[in-house]
Design a protein around this nucleic acid. Structure first.
Lengths: 205, 205
DNA sequence: CCTTGACCCTCCCCCAACGTCACCCCCTAC
DNA sequence: GTAGGGGGTGACGTTGGGGGAGGGTCAAGG
C-alpha cells in the first residue's frame, strides 16, 4: 500500500494553499486529517489529499466552503446536477462581467461620462447587484434556470440581428484571415484589436 | 436651484441598495451626507447622489470600497489610468472564469474524473488562486501588465495554430450561417451548441 | 389629544475565509 | 546551548455589510 503521509506544510505546498487554510478546513470540519501524531501534528493521507483537491476545485468554482462540505457528502448523481447549476451560475456571472467590461470600455473611450439623466441614473445597475445571480440558482439544486433565462434572452434576437451578427462575424473573420496571411505576429496591434472586437461581438449577442 | 434632498431611505430605494450600506459608507467616510438634520437624520443632496452613483459603478467593477475612496479623490487623468488597470484585472478575471467554465464542462461530460495522476493533481490550480490576479495589478496603477502578459501568451501561438484557428472559425461561421439560413430559432439546440463552441474557441486562443 | 405606522437614529454583535499576530512545543544541526 | 525550521492552539483583524435592540421623529387619522 501507499502509506504516504503529508504534514500540513507539505500538503499546503503541494496544493499551493496556505497552512492557515488547511487548519481552517480542519477547524470547520471540512477536511480533517485522518491521523494525528502524538505530538498533535496533523498527518494527511493520500485520500485526504484527494478530498482537498475536490475542495479546491469546488472552491475555484465559487462554492462556499459550507456548500462544498454538503456537496462532498452527497451521491455523485446529485453532484452532477449541482455542477450543472453551478455552470448556469458561472455563465450568469461571466455575462455580468462582460457587461461590466463593455461599460468600462465605453467609460474609457468616452470622456463625457457626465451626460446622464439625473432621474434614472441608477437604472443601469438594475438586475445587476452582485448577489442577485447567486440567489437565482441557490437551493434550486440542478434545475438550471439561468440556462433557461439565457434561452429566453436569446429568443429576443430576431433574424435581423442574426444577419447583422453574420456580416460582422464574416468581416471579422476576413480581417483575421488577412492579418494572418500577411504574416503579422500574433501580438500585432491590428490583430489584437480584431480579437478584441470579436470578443465584444460575442459579448453582445 | 434644485435643492432636492433625499432621506436615507429614499436614496437607498433610488439606488437599489440597502439603507445599511449607505450608513456603512457614511461610517467609513466614503459617502457622508452633506447635511444632517437637527433630528440626526441624514439628508443627501443631488451631488451626494452623483457620488453614490460613481461609488456603485466602481463597486460593480470590483473595486474595494477603500480603493473607491482613493479613486474619487484623484484627478480624472489618474482615474483614466486606474480604469485601464482595472480593465486588465477584469480581463484576467474573465479569462480565469472561462478556464473554470471549460474545466467544468469537461467535468460534466467526463465521468471518469478519477483518472488523475496523484502527484501533479494540483497543478491545474497553478496561476489560479483567486487573489493572484489581484496582486498582479495592484499598486502598479495604470501600467497594465496583464495586457502585456496577454501579448506574451499570444506570441506563443505560431502560424499553424492560427491556421487551425482560421479553419475552425470558418467552419463555425459556416454552421452558424447555415443555421440562420434555415431559419432556426435562436434557442435551437444546434445554434446554442455552435455558439458554445465559438465561445470555447475564443477561450482557448 | 392620543395613537399608529413608517421612518430615522445609534450602538452592538454576526458572517466567511482566512491573515496575522502571540506564545508554545519538538527536532535536528552546529 | 542555541538557532532554525518545522509543528500546535488561541484570539483578534479584515471586508461589506445583515440583523436586531432600544429609542426618537413625523405625518395622518380618530
Amino acid at each position: 500500500m501507499n502509506l504516504q503521509q503529508y504534514t500540513i506544510g507539505e500538503l499546503a505546498r503541494l496544493a499551493g494553499i496556505s497552512i492557515r487554510s488547511l487548519r481552517h478546513y480542519d477547524s470547520i470540519g471540512l477536511l480533517k486529517p485522518s491521523h494525528r501524531g502524538d505530538n498533535g501534528y496533523r498527518y494527511y493521507t493520500e485520500e485526504d489529499s484527494k478530498r482537498l483537491f475536490d475542495i479546491l476545485f469546488y472552491r475555484a468554482l465559487g462554492f462556499a466552503l459550507s456548500e462544498i462540505g454538503d456537496l462532498l457528502n452527497r451521491p455523485v448523481t446529485d453532484r452532477q446536477k449541482q455542477l450543472l447549476a453551478q455552470r448556469g451560475q458561472l455563465d450568469a456571472h461571466i455575462t455580468r462581467l462582460h457587461q461590466i467590461r463593455a461599460r468600462l470600455d465605453t467609460l474609457i473611450n468616452d470622456e463625457e461620462n457626465q451626460a446622464m439623466s439625473n432621474e434614472n441614473r441608477f437604472a443601469v445597475f438594475d438586475g445587476f447587484d452582485p448577489d442577485q445571480y447567486e440567489e437565482e440558482v441557490k437551493d434550486r439544486l440542478g434545475d438550471t434556470d439561468a440556462y433557461r433565462e439565457s434561452c429566453r434572452r436569446t429568443k429576443k434576437y430576431n433574424s435581423q440581428d442574426w444577419a447583422r451578427y453574420k456580416s460582422e462575424a464574416d468581416a471579422l473573420n476576413q480581417s483575421m484571415a488577412s492579418s494572418m496571411d500577411k504574416g503579422l505576429s500574433a501580438d500585432d496591434p491590428a490583430v489584437l484589436e480584431a480579437v478584441e472586437k470579436m470578443r465584444l461581438m460575442i459579448d453582445t449577442w
